[in-house]
Nucleic acid binder design. Structure first.
Length: 503
DNA sequence: AAACAGTGCGCG
DNA sequence: AAAGCGCGCACTGTTT
């Protein structure tokens, strides 16, 4: 009887060689400015202290809190916070968690009209930064270097994950937090940190599967912009009136959520709330609320799943946009999703284009996302293996030091900068597309680099200055794969070492 | 003291 | 009929 394994030979090799490459990367490690980390800890601690003192002025709330919980008072407790705000003080909130507790996340708390909330949330954020990103970082640093782990065995989608520290969730979207934390990551002396990102890799991998002609057109034609166009639809704007923030909302509150399987009720809510929260305006400077009013929309709607949206509400409008999005704009994508779910229901498992099998109980949204998320990462993993190999072959001093799902971080000597950037382009784009014939849309990367000796905060877009681009290595050195066969004595030495130390 | 569930939040 | 994908870490409060 043949043994069933959950992946093809090709997939096995990807994991096998990927694990080895990641192990090398883990050994390389990242340089950390430990003096800075100490200073930052000190500074953030002091700031928290100052803010806590200010928070004391909200006697109306803290008094009630201490009175209720006495010796058990804990300002970090969500349970206590929820009880004080929504039961004792009577602020109303319909938001409950799955297990029926009061929701106390940022979004919910921000709906409370009391200055206490803003101060409380600011402190909470700083505390997280301090304990996770500064103390947590410091705890893992050895002699000025950090060695995060990259795992291939924990994500259900065959993506990677990272721990000790988690290198894949370092703050970047909030500039204030990013500045505090990323300043700690520095290149080795005389070098730069260089980061190569795949642009929109999940969207491109998805297109390879559903082959929707309109989506492929968006990817191929650089004058087209899907997110801008969807922002136009959602907010009923002319193309030239879509500002940067409005496009951002179209992308992150409609397009991506829709791809992941969200529906109009939640999209309408976040798109609507963003207008106030982000103070969205048109390019001509008109508030989107006013703009929508001119278009006849003044209300969000009830957002009640049990009843159909009412004509003239924003909810109704977004429902129409959703319908248009899947039925008119990307019908082939919609059909693929339907067929894909059908196929899973019929036989109980899925095969990714990279040769992995996903099995077990899956809901609709998992079924349509797994074969995209995994392979998008596999493009990166394949590149990581090949890039690492090429760096060895060329005897470059560049060190690969980390990976964040769709980007590669390297510590690059200044004199190797352009060679590394061109090599990345060759491998991550040209060779990847040649290797996997299921990739039927163009793949692109973007490069960012810090100045020499500059911290990770200071990375900026970079382009290679070498006109001739990638240079082939000649003569070709033997394949890295054959290394152990060419060095049997080293193999023996390693086996002996393992016996002595790990027996 | 250690393990577990629940919540919240950082990233792609 | 169902209703946002994938992670890791810190913390609270309960159970073992």
């Amino acid at each position: 009887m043949s043994k069933i394994i959950p992946y093809t030979e090709q997939a096995f090799r990807l994991l096998f060689e990927g694990a080895q490459t990641l192990a090398q990367i883990e050994c390389n490690g990242l340089r950390i400015d430990t003096d800075y980390v100490d200073r930052a800890i000190e500074r953030v601690q002091n700031k928290i202290k100052r803010l806590l003192a200010e928070l004391e002025t909200h006697k109306d709330i803290l008094g009630v809190w201490k009175k209720k919980y006495k010796g058990k008072t804990n300002f970090n407790s969500n349970e206590q916070l929820g009880s004080i705000m929504f039961e004792v003080l009577g602020f109303s909130s319909p938001e409950k968690t799955e297990s029926g507790q009061w929701k106390t996340d940022e979004e919910t708390l921000n709906k409370i009209d009391h200055p206490f909330v803003k101060d409380y949330l600011e402190i909470k954020k700083l505390k997280t930064t301090l304990s996770v990103n500064l103390r947590g970082l410091k705890r893992e640093v050895v002699h000025g270097y950090l060695y995060p782990f990259f795992l291939l065995n924990s994500a259900r989608t065959y993506r990677s994950s990272s721990e000790a520290i988690n290198f894949q969730n370092i703050p970047i979207r909030d500039p204030a937090k990013a500045r505090i934390v990323r300043r700690a990551f520095i290149p080795r002396p005389g070098r730069r940190l260089v980061e190569n990102d795949y642009s929109g890799i999940e969207v491109r991998v998805a297109a390879c599967l559903h082959k929707d002609p309109r989506m492929i057109e968006y990817i191929k034609d650089k004058t087209k912009d899907m997110h801008r166009d969807m922002a136009m639809k959602c907010y009923m704007l002319a193309q030239q009136e879509v500002s940067k923030n409005v496009r951002y909302c179209g992308k992150n509150m409609f397009v991506f959520p829709q791809f992941y399987g969200d529906w109009y009720i939640d999209c309408a809510r976040s798109l609507w709330e963003a207008i106030e929260k982000m103070k969205l305006i048109t390019v001509s400077g008109i508030s989107l609320r006013k703009h929508l009013k001119d278009k006849g929309i003044t209300k969000l709607g009830r957002l009640d799943p049990r009843e159909p949206p009412r004509l003239g509400t924003f909810e109704y409008h977004i429902q129409q946009v959703e319908k248009w999005f899947w039925e008119e704009m990307f019908p082939a994508y919609a059909k693929w999703r339907k067929d894909w779910v059908q196929l899973y229901k019929k036989r109980g498992w899925l095969l990714t284009p990279t040769g992995f099998i996903c099995q077990g109980y899956m809901g609709k949204n998992e079924i349509i996302n797994y074969p995209i998320q995994g392979p998008a990462f596999h493009c990166l993993l394949w590149s990581l293996i090949e890039l690492h190999r090429a760096i060895q072959k060329r005897k470059m001093k560049t060190l690969l030091v980390g990976q964040i799902h769709d980007s590669i971080v390297a510590d690059v000597p200044d004199e190797e900068l352009d060679e590394y950037v061109d090599l990345s382009q060759e491998i991550m784009v040209n060779r990847l597309m040649k290797t996997w014939d299921w990739i039927i849309v163009p793949i692109e990367i973007e490069t960012e680099a810090t100045p020499v000796d500059g911290s990770w905060v200071t990375k900026k877009a970079y382009e290679s200055k070498r006109k001739e681009g990638f240079r082939r290595l000649k003569p070709q050195t033997p394949e890295w794969r054959e290394y152990w066969h060419r060095h049997p004595s080293e193999q023996d030495a390693m086996i002996a070492f393992r016996k002595e130390n790990f027996a």
